[in-house]
Amino acid sequence: MSSPVRYIDRIREYYLPLYNNPYKWAHYEDAPFTPLKKPLAESRVVLISTSEITARDTAREEGDDRQSGGGVYTIAADVPADQLYTPTPSFDKHATTMEDVGAFYPTSALHEAVESGRIGSLTKRFHGVYNAYSQRHTRERDLPEVLKRCREDGAEVAVLTPV
């Protein structure tokens, strides 16, 4: 098996002809850790994504506060996968496709996991976070908003998927 792509190095080289100032990626020495408080079969799970997932019926969305960079929005958790799509251009279009939302937004698999009893339940709402060039914007404005929405819905475990 070949090694994973070193994206930080690859992206730095890719954009070097355009910018003299390479992007400084967020980096922390330590990481927080919270053990599960109860079995998954009794836990309420939320799905959070940066995939710009969008419902074809926009009435199912709320609170879209997309800014020039960043922002948080919410989408009903029970929108079927065939009613979802993403407009994002930020994926490897030469190697894969966004036709099947299950490959980046596992709502169907999560609903199946509820039906089989593997997890207790899902929150009523799932959340999206738009990417921001500014880490400060993400940290100071978007993260507290995501936490607030998770707490409003009683989320006990979070599944996160980037694109």
């Binding site: 967020a26 990417n131 979070a158 980037p162």
Partner: peptide
């Protein structure tokens, strides 16, 4: 950038 954003969310929620 998506992977960084999601990682920051994970750290904050945790």
């Amino acid at each position: 950038m998506c992977h960084q954003t999601v990682s920051l969310v994970a750290r904050y929620l945790e």
